[in-house]
Write a protein that binds this DNA or RNA. Structure first.
Length: 570
DNA sequence: GCCGTTTTCGGCCCGACTGTTTTCAGTCG
């Protein structure tokens, strides 16, 4: 599954960590971190690039290109091996403990021979840190607590879970008297598929009531830190950070707390080049110290000579360069979604009836909806030819009740281990559209899985490949396939790829979807709803599509009905 | 170690909070 790019990105990040632990130049650490991100996000596979071409990757110069080249040819980087010999892997692992960074980790290793989280815990209990410079009683306590947190939580959750918690907290803080504005920022605003913590921003003249309301929320299990304007708490699922700013700083603060860290470093560098300083308090003129912009995010970007950049793009993965050139994509939005092309009813594994699902889709203002229940090869769903035909009749009869919305009758076919799907061509021809998905045999070899998906694309009745990687966040790994090969098959056959919007799927993931976009492919963003509330999950699919830089033209369910129907008939 | 509409050398993002350091380093975001 892993591209060589990801493998090398991990190695460069490890090299950066080891330089930091061994007390190397902090700027060098940053360079390797930046290079790791650049390589990981580079659209081309680096395995075919020579040193010259490698230097064409942003933040990769002669030295790092040589290391990558060495790895491609020998599967090792000798400087990295030398650092590994000096610093046991467990010492790097130590820095994953909250409050324990590279400096303290190295002190622990050098002064006490501590080389793992386990040995750190033992050493603290045995009193072996006593007398160690910089390690007082409170530090010991914090480290023990950090180890506990690491073993228990330390896990990211899917965006649906985080969004529910965040929206609840935002609503409660917004209701506090004196709160001018309140919003979530961070990776949640950037619509990442998994969330490690929630960042909440509030504006008000007096921070005290907001901080008090925040720390006394019923979901709070522990207050980690509490200052004048900044407060961190733990909840059973995630850490939540609140920052309170003055109303006039709202735009600058939102820009800062939305991140990503890498994006912020770039925007601050741009500010420095313009003799400006950018912080969460605003854009300042370095010479005069005057505040130039801070009220709105748009103002902040404008002072940097940039258009406002949509949060899902803010990963330093090309958005700064595109913004400078005026070439930011015209992103697909929730408002642009005209219909849902993948929903289930209680005829198979859905919870709601056909009538309920269609009524709910209509209430969302959709211009069309496709009912796509499972097909017979998914045996536990007990679908039959007769049931499918009967449902088609029901769908046809319902049409009169929804003059403003087209009702399409489709199916979610099962892609068998060999790439075959349910039903013969003459039966498939009766559907308005067919989504085809992998539901079993997830562990086939890359070659088998690739052939399986390519064969499904080649079936003339398959319009869309559903949840292509089959991943379930936190529960099932994506299948292993040669995605470039699959994308070429999609391009050849005109098959669209689904971005399944179910929050624990988000499949295709954004990274793969962006690569698929480079092949000029088409996408369907679909809820895969199995109940009425699931239809609202569309927003997470849209967020994923935005992170993949998709514009409406690439997304078939933003198209007006006539264009969609023409595409389905091809 | 990378990079260049001030620079091929000399810069490299900014601030809050904590703990222990009697004036600031480490960590985090």
């Amino acid at each position: 599954m892993e591209r060589l790019n990801d493998e090398v990105a991990d190695l460069l990040q490890e090299y950066a960590d080891l330089i930091a632990i061994t007390g190397g130049d902090a700027f060098k650490v940053r360079v390797y971190e930046k290079a790791a991100r650049s390589v990981g996000g580079y659209s081309q596979d680096i395995s075919g690039l020579d040193e010259r071409a490698l230097r064409g990757i942003p933040n990769v110069g002669a030295s790092i290109a040589a290391k990558i080249d060495e790895y491609v040819h020998t599967r090792a980087i000798h400087q990295l091996e030398e650092l590994r010999a000096r610093v046991p892997a467990g010492v790097r692992q130590l820095t994953t403990v909250p409050t324990l960074g590279p400096k303290k980790a190295m002190v622990l290793y050098q002064e006490r021979g501590i080389d793992s989280v386990e040995s750190l815990e033992r050493a603290i209990h045995a009193g072996e840190l006593q007398g160690l410079h910089g390690f007082g009683a409170k530090t010991e306590e914090n480290l023990l607590h950090g180890i506990q947190v690491l073993s228990k939580a330390g896990r990211r959750v899917h965006i649906g879970l985080a969004m529910g918690l965040a929206e609840d907290i935002v609503a409660r803080l917004a209701a506090v008297p004196g709160c001018d504005r309140c919003a979530y920022a961070g990776s949640l605003r950037r619509m990442k598929d998994t969330i490690g913590d929630i960042d909440v921003l509030a504006a008000g003249d007096d921070s005290a009531p907001l901080m008090a309301a925040f720390t006394s929320l019923s979901c709070v299990t522990e207050v980690i830190a509490r200052g004048e304007t900044k407060c961190s708490v733990r909840t059973p699922t995630l850490q939540v950070d609140l920052r309170v700013v003055a109303r006039d700083s709202w735009g600058a603060a939102l820009q800062y707390f939305t991140g990503s860290k890498a994006h912020n470093i770039r925007t601050r560098e741009i500010a420095v080049h313009r003799k400006l300083k950018l912080s969460e308090y605003g854009v300042f003129d370095v010479t005069s110290g005057d505040l130039i912009a801070s009220a709105r995010e748009e103002d902040v970007y404008e002072m940097l000579g940039l258009p406002w950049i949509p949060p899902p793009l803010r990963e330093d993965s090309g958005e700064i360069e595109a913004a400078m050139l005026g070439e930011l994509p015209d992103l697909v939005t929730s408002a642009g979604i005209r219909g849902d092309l993948h929903i289930h009813t209680d005829l198979t594994d859905g919870l709601a009836s056909l009538e309920e699902m269609v009524a709910a889709a209509s209430a969302l203002g959709y211009a069309y909806v496709a009912v796509t229940d499972h097909a017979p090869n998914l045996y536990m769903q007990r679908m039959t030819d007769a049931k499918a035909l009967d449902q088609r009749g029901q769908v046809r009869r319902l049409r009169d009740a929804y003059p403003g919305m087209a009702l399409l009758h489709g199916a979610e076919l099962n892609i068998g281990p060999d790439g075959d799907v349910d039903w013969p061509p003459e039966f498939l021809a009766g559907f308005d559209l067919c989504v085809a998905s992998v539901h079993s045999h997830f562990t086939q070899s890359r070659a088998e899985m690739t052939r399986r998906l390519v064969r499904a694309c080649e079936n003339p009745y398959v319009t869309i490949i559903g949840h292509p990687t089959g991943r379930v966040i936190g529960r099932r790994e994506p299948v292993d396939a040669d995605w470039e090969e699959v994308f070429r098959a999609c391009a050849r056959t005109g098959t669209a790829l689904e971005i399944d919007a179910f929050p624990d799927r988000l499949d295709l993931p954004a990274g793969l979807a962006r690569r698929a976009r480079d092949h000029g492919l088409l996408f369907s963003i679909a809820s895969d709803a199995h109940a009425v509330p699931h239809l609202a999950g569309m927003r997470y699919g849209v967020g994923t599509a935005q992170r993949a830089w998709l514009d409406p033209d690439h997304v078939i369910n933003t198209w007006p009905l006539p264009r969609l129907l023409e595409f389905l008939r091809r």
